[in-house]
Simulated scan of single mutants.
Amino acid sequence: MIERDAAGRALAHLVLIVGVLIVAFPIWYTFVASTQSVETILRPPLPLVPGGEFAENYGNAIFGGMSRIGGVGVGTLLFNSTVMALGIALGKIVISLLSAFAIVFFRFPFRMACFWMIFITLMLPVEVRIMPTYKVMVDLGLIDTYAGLILPLVASATATLLFRQFFMTIPAELVEAARIDGAGPLRFLRDILLPLSKTNIAALFVILFIYGWTQYLWPLLVTNDNRMNTIVIALKKMVSFADADTPWDMVMVTAILAIAPPVLIVVLMQRWFVRGLVESEK
């Protein structure tokens, strides 16, 4: 039995290692390409070890400007993407938390009708309502602004549903005890619900940050100024139909820098993320 368990663990570790190598190899290959010159990249086969252009390529990308995207540096693109992703993630969490709190703990007319109206918006993603949303942004003068990037994507029926389901597990005795102690609604939310919801908030933050970071269609429509582009939009603009016209060294650098923030968020918050998804006892 012990030998069988040891063999099973060894096989499981082998499968995991192979899976990690399969997933990580394209990222490593992109990193290696980002440290090479354009001539080396266009002349196969590409080496599997980093080259000597690391400092020059990354320095030019971050602090310099690239002609194909209007002379904007990757530092500006990263800032735009970070503002958008943080705004969407934090906005979705705050709005969903408050809406779920109102639906669960307050009694008002058409309470469930309001919830189902929020839930039905799951069938209306931004791609379906993109033309009227774009018209509203134009009328409000929000084209090429951070508000225009964030506001149309800031509501989340999914997060509202998740918070509602969690709040419904809060014992009625806890709510009654808070009332007896004189805690008002906002104090109950701040002192009791928020601490109990921290793992859910962390898990949602990771998911929503990546959702905001990887947006392509809406930023493409709502930004005309190259200085307001996100890094995902800039990557598409940098690639030409002809290999010789594409600065592949800068493309690879930009791709690596585009991957880094979401990966960092997942690595730093992985424990909270997993707990928020699988924890059942609150």
Results as ranks from 00 to 15, higher is better:
R111S: 12
I207Y: 10
M112Q: 13
P45T: 12
M84Q: 15
F119Q: 08
W248S: 03
D181Q: 07
I143R: 08
E281N: 14
Y211W: 15
V128I: 15
I95T: 14
P171L: 02
F188G: 01
N229V: 03
L204S: 06
A260S: 08
A260Y: 08
Y58K: 02
P219V: 06
L151D: 06
A155D: 08
P152Y: 07
I95Y: 06
A178M: 00
I233T: 02
G91W: 12
T76Q: 11
W28V: 07
L98K: 04
V251Y: 01
E56Y: 07
I207T: 11
G184A: 08
V138F: 10
K236T: 12
P195D: 04
E56A: 14
I180R: 03
G148V: 00
N229I: 07
F166C: 02
R271Y: 09
I93V: 13
S81Y: 05
F119T: 02
D181K: 08
R68M: 11
M123L: 14
D225H: 05
M1H: 10
G182N: 10
Y216D: 10
A89T: 09
W272D: 07
V72M: 05
I93G: 05
V253Q: 01
A255D: 00
E56M: 08
A242E: 14
D225S: 11
V232R: 07
A203T: 09
V253A: 03
V239G: 07
Y134H: 05
T223V: 04
S99C: 09
A61N: 01
A10G: 10
W28T: 04
L162N: 04
I207W: 08
L196T: 01
G91S: 08
G8E: 10
R4I: 12
I259V: 13
T223R: 02
M228Q: 13
L186T: 13
L153K: 04
T214G: 14
I130L: 09
V15R: 05
N200H: 14
F119K: 02
S37D: 09
D249A: 12
W213R: 10
F188I: 04
V222T: 06
I192M: 06
W116K: 05
M252H: 04
M137P: 01
A172S: 15
A255M: 00
D181A: 09
L186V: 15
A61L: 05
K237H: 12
S34Y: 10
A147L: 14
M112C: 03
R275D: 05
G182Y: 12
T246C: 11
Q270V: 05
I265H: 00
A258K: 03
W28M: 06
S197P: 12
I210W: 09
P50V: 04
P171W: 05
F54K: 06
N226V: 13
A178F: 00
G73R: 07
M1D: 13
L124Q: 04
E53Q: 15
L193A: 00
T76R: 15
A258P: 04
F105N: 00
K198H: 14
L77W: 06
L268A: 15
E3S: 07
L97M: 13
T169W: 06
V253L: 00
T158N: 11
F163W: 01
T214Y: 09
G64Q: 02
M117Y: 11
R190C: 03
G141C: 09
M123D: 05
I256N: 00
L21K: 04
L48M: 14
E279A: 13
